[in-house]
Design a binder for these strands. Sequence first.
DNA 1: TATTGACCTCAAGTTAACTTGAAGTGGCAC
DNA 2: GTGCCACTTCAAGTTAACTTGAGGTCAATA
Lengths: 142, 142
Amino acid sequence: MRFLDIGALAARSGTSAATLRYYEDIGLITSIGRHGLRRQFGSEALVRLSLIALGKAAGFSLTEISGMIGRDGTPDLPRDILRAQADALDTKVRALSALSQTLRHAADCPAPTHLECPTFRRLLRVAVRRGHRARRTNSTSN
Amino acid sequence: MRFLDIGALAARSGTSAATLRYYEDIGLITSIGRHGLRRQFGSEALVRLSLIALGKAAGFSLTEISGMIGRDGTPDLPRDILRAQADALDTKVRALSALSQTLRHAADCPAPTHLECPTFRRLLRVAVRRGHRARRTNSTSN
DNA sequence: TATTGACCTCAAGTTAACTTGAAGTGGCAC
DNA sequence: GTGCCACTTCAAGTTAACTTGAGGTCAATA
């Protein structure tokens, strides 16, 4: 039982079988071979799917994720690119923290309307500036 | 000149005129009125667009953003929802930080392939667990 | 051995968030 | 007053990331 068929992989990864086939189509994951018609996956597919889930949570497209974790059999990533991705993520983290602060302030602010509160507007400006920086750094802007 | 027509708003907000019309269609922004055929926007539209940009950067859909910042003329938000959104964002921030750490470790790790490195795999497990928690908390999972 | 249910392929449909295009209008500088 | 050009509407097209459906296969269980 070293191999998983698509149903087992779906159950363990929380990704539907149809989506797994789609991921294989576009080269995001690879099956080891077939048992009759049925795809057989190795356990490293589970690790790859974890990475994919993580990348999606971080807001990367499947294409970008594909670039990060390597297309075919080679799950090895160029290290300088990894560092750049980490930097971009950190920038994004800072922007999101700013947004969180902004929302939290809005929740506690006594001003009748948040748009009238000077603190809110200042936080907003800061957050937006960070967003711009993140977008430039990232080059992910469509 | 207290009003902006769509071209001016587009220039100042960095959002295309077509997109602004689309946003008005779906009720994300509102124009003050018309000058002839032409929409006139007030400066609060700029603030709203900042909020929208921020929400998008945070990974929210336009529908979710619409819920956060209020649909029509009322840009006021229910405070408990704001706090919940901030909490969800903080969780996401933690997940992204974990991902960043994971990537950074991968960049420095001497293992021939990251998938073979135990530290990488441990970080990955942690990051994924956080991702799951975030998704449950968020209820944004489609 | 017969059936069942999990798999298969391939095509088409779906949703969000826009973008593009065609055809028309009207404010304003000359 | 006329011509340009930024606007207008409306319909259709686009992209990513799937999902759904129809019709077929086959490995294992009864």
